[in-house]
Design a protein around this nucleic acid. Structure first.
Length: 437
RNA sequence: GAGGGAAUAGCUCAAUUGGUUAGAGCAUCGGUCUGUGGCACCGAGGGCUGUGGGUUCAAGUCCCAUUUCCCUCCCCA
């Protein structure tokens, strides 16, 4: 009927997760779950579609129009596939803002789509752990989120030589720009883009770019001074009371008294793209020279709930994507090889035994919670069956041929040590549990 | 959106200036060997050379287009 087959590749920028891939993904999301739940966070989830306006309202319309997958549904509603989780979290909190108990500690693991050109560390579909803490704004909130971030990465065996959390503050950044650099609002927009270029371009190209964008030479010099200064130095330059400076210095004051100090540093060049951030912002960097890039980040958003309801709820959170993180785990060789082990049982079969005997054995194991399969291959030579078990990473094989059955026995074979143990068929489960583990 | 590289068996790769029937290793399957797997030997299957055009007596190889993948930039997390 068909002279042409359909292509088997997945849609551009998306991945097929075969069992081998799922094992890795499930492994690290399970670890992440364990960490965030140890901090008292509860899992939640929203729909994959939201009204387009939910994203358009806050992420900057240009970005949204270019990167969000959107369409009109049959009821003429303008819908979007979620490009991130935070607006959904804000919407759900707003919907129950009266009855909800604060602080809200929520997390989710979900997939997102953005229409981007795929490249290293960035695809069109990605999975992300999202962690949000909502209620009031305050030092203890900021510190807790920071601590969750650091402990997440540490959970995988990473130490302070592998990653660093760079911290800045939106209000502080604006204050410094206004008071120290004397930048006009228009100039600030240009400079916020220059920050990123500064680390990528050679110095002369970078300054040239700034000049071309209309920044006077004197301000470029002052900007350069600012980038070289410490937090306290910069804060001292500010004349009035700076809320941003206080938020930053308070946070670092607490960090220095706890175990987080080695993992954190102030970095004035961290700005973050999302427009809704208002206070402290965080960005986790891979310190490997081969992969010097931002792993994930987040920050405080004061006004997001206000999009949906008149309510004084501030939030802080971060998104932790699987693509960049898997790169991180691979470059630092933090993925254990034993996650590909099967941890199950293979029941080998023989032609001189009625098949129902194997079904009975399999059922007994399964009902008592032991994962097992019966060998299905056409070639029932024993060696072949053991080879199959080995290639599947199965740890135990059970041998019950006509000889064993007539003597009321079963042989349990440990595939790695090759040791065999005879146990009575009548006491099979009881005795097998002593061996299995 | 801009630029560069790549695409041949399930995987990793060969194939002389364009020249017989596109090969090898690994993997799979079968056998040596229906009752004990990592070894060895023998054998088999598996390809419209990403797709569509063009040049030529002749295209995996050259040209054009297209799709996808990788990398860099832009943008941005």
């Amino acid at each position: 009927m068909s002279d042409k087959f359909l292509p088997t590749n997945s849609y551009i920028g998306t991945r097929d997760f075969y069992p081998d891939d799922m094992r890795v993904r499930n492994w690290f999301f399970a670890k992440m779950r364990k960490v965030v739940e140890s901090f008292g966070y509860e899992e939640m989830l929203g729909p994959i579609l939201e009204p387009f306006d939910v994203f358009a309202a806050k992420s900057g319309e240009e970005i949204v129009n270019e990167q969000v997958y959107h369409f009109t549904d049959r009821g003429e509603r303008h819908m979007a596939i979620r490009p991130e989780m935070t607006p959904t979290v804000a919407r759900m909190v707003a919907a129950k803002s009266g009855e909800i108990r604060y602080p809200v500690r929520w997390y989710s693991i979900a997939n997102f789509m953005r229409y981007e050109r795929p490249q290293k560390g960035r695809l069109r579909e990605f999975w992300q752990l999202n962690v949000d803490l909502l209620g009031e704004s305050g030092l203890e909130y900021d510190y807790e989120i920071l601590s969750v971030m650091v402990n997440l990465v540490k959970e995988f065996g990473a130490d302070e030589t592998m990653f660093k959390v760079k911290i800045n503050n939106r209000r502080f950044y604006n204050d410094v720009m206004r008071e120290v650099v004397n930048a006009t609002p228009d100039e600030m927009k240009v400079i916020s883009k220059a920050v990123d270029k500064r680390s990528k371009l050679p110095r002369d190209k970078y300054e040239e770019w700034l000049k071309d964008s209309g920044i006077p030479g004197a301000k470029i010099d002052r900007l350069e001074e600012v980038f070289g200064m410490s937090l306290s130095g910069l804060a001292g330059k500010l004349t009035g009371d700076s809320q941003g400076a206080k938020e930053l210095t308070d946070l670092f004051g607490l960090i220095d008294k706890t175990g987080l100090a080695p993992y954190c540093e102030f970095d004035f060049s961290i700005v973050r793209g999302l427009e809704y951030y208002t206070g402290n912002i965080f960005e986790v960097y891979d310190l490997d020279p081969e992969n010097r890039r931002a792993l994930f980040g987040g920050g405080r958003y004061d006004n997001l709930i206000g999009l949906f309801k008149k309510a004084e709820v501030s939030g802080i959170g971060f998104g932790f994507g699987d693509v960049t993180f898997q790169n991180f785990l691979e470059t630092h060789m933090l993925i254990p090889s034993d996650i590909h082990e099967n941890n199950g049982v293979l029941i080998t079969v023989f032609d001189d035994v009625d098949y129902s005997e194997y079904i009975r054995l399999s059922d007994e194991l399964r009902v008592s919670g032991i994962k097992n399969t019966i060998y299905f291959g056409g070639n029932k030579k024993m060696g072949r069956q053991f080879q199959y078990a080995e290639s599947m990473g199965i740890k135990f094989a059970i041998v019950m041929g006509g000889n064993e059955l007539s003597e009321g026995k079963v042989i349990v074979k440990d595939m790695t040590t090759r040791e065999q143990t005879e146990i009575k068929r009548a006491k099979f489960l009881e005795d097998f549990r002593k061996i299995f583990r």
